[in-house]
């Protein structure tokens, strides 16, 4: 697990049923590209988050395949439809097998 990985997610606390809301996510991660070399000329191995998903009550909002060209501390902004009250679940998958999760609840009405 990369050190000190912290997710940061912006989801409104409530919405109207069927409303489209904007979500923003940030997560601290070096996203080591595998292209850099250390001081001795050795390639620093790739170590990135390779997938990000957002689900609402178990149904997919967005599923992103991520490559080394994504910047350090990856950022996403996207829209979601909120059919009912429930939980957004955000998941980041690290090359090293670690999984980082964040859950945000939203009420309707």
């Amino acid at each position: 697990m990369a050190e000190g990985v912290t997710p940061r997610v912006k989801v409104p606390k409530k919405a109207e049923a069927g409303e489209v809301i904007t979500i923003k996510t940030l997560i601290s991660h070096p996203m080591e590209s595998g292209q850099r070399k250390d001081g001795d000329g050795n390639v620093i191995p790739r170590s990135i988050i390779n997938r990000f998903t957002a689900e609402f009550n178990g149904e997919s909002v967005i599923d992103v395949k991520m490559e080394p060209a994504m910047s350090t501390n990856p950022y996403f902004e996207f829209d979601a439809t909120v059919p009912e009250a429930g939980d957004f679940k955000f998941t980041w998958y690290d090359d090293d097998g670690s999984v980082y999760e964040e859950v945000k609840s939203i009420t309707v009405g």
Partner: peptide
């Protein structure tokens, strides 16, 4: 202009 766009805020959280 938005604390959820500003990556510096990750470190504030930490």
């Amino acid at each position: 202009m938005d604390d959820f766009d500003n990556p510096g805020m990750i470190f504030v959280d930490q």
